[in-house]
Design a protein around this nucleic acid. Sequence first.
DNA 1: GTAGTACTTTATAATGATTCTAAAAAGGTG
DNA 2: CACCTTTTTAGAATCATTATAAAGTACTAC
Lengths: 132, 132
Amino acid sequence: MKYIEKLRNSGLRPTKQRLQICEVLFNSEKTFHFTINDLDQKIKKQISDKISLATIYNTVHAFEKKGYLKQIPINSNQIYFDTNISDHHHFYDLKEEKLIDLENADVGPINILKKINGKKIKSVEVLVKLED
Amino acid sequence: MKYIEKLRNSGLRPTKQRLQICEVLFNSEKTFHFTINDLDQKIKKQISDKISLATIYNTVHAFEKKGYLKQIPINSNQIYFDTNISDHHHFYDLKEEKLIDLENADVGPINILKKINGKKIKSVEVLVKLED
DNA sequence: GTAGTACTTTATAATGATTCTAAAAAGGTG
DNA sequence: CACCTTTTTAGAATCATTATAAAGTACTAC
Ligand SMILES: [Mn+2]
Ligand SMILES: [Mn+2]
Ligand SMILES: [Zn+2]
Ligand SMILES: [Zn+2]
């Protein structure tokens, strides 16, 4: 199967649940943004087996740790994840409460002039809030 | 008093609790970042009267609505607020779990090239994650 | 294959930040 | 002072997330 090696290579056993979650997350043309609740709904629609909510949490966190998912820094009562793990940015539509990808190319190069002693930059993320 | 007019001008009654919270938030030389829990601790240290947690929540939200405080978009189990309401950015030190201000001048000008139909840009915020 | 072991799933409970409730207190106005 | 509105408050409720621990599954060694 498509995702068995991917999981094995990360030291994650390719269980039925994880493979099914992979299908839901990574088998679509487009990448997308989701909360755990969104994902739970999507799984219910696409998968006939039941996957417990605890497993969904566990799996999403495991995938995030392995770099298959990213968290998006945003203030919300739920955590937003992204299946687009490329270096990119986001619009946040305040009215629709929706995230929209903003590719690196759509943002001029960002040059952080200030340096912090003994620290390295791990990521630079831009959030552009949108209103009507 | 210093903050009575400020509150009245915003349509907020200058209660004892709000004035005391103003002292803690706005009377220091430097601006700072805080969670509600941080603020609760700070109030306990600096103010002899007890202020209920509900009032702290109410007041912080009222001040945010009036523009005296800003929320910082970041993934945490608590909401981070900023008494620095100027247009600026942040470092986030992942190990220390601390925010550091990054003035606009410390970030090159940011040019958002992509436009979203019918939407205006309300804010552009950069989060720079730091590791050792 | 079987046995042994570590990992995973699961239902359920616990946690904890935040919000809600509704009654008491305080502010503002005349 | 009355009157009305806003605010404070203790405590309860909410709800996303995490922890627990027992049952199930995957892998390894023989
Ligand atoms: Mn289904
Ligand atoms: Mn803190
Ligand atoms: Zn994205
Ligand atoms: Zn700041």
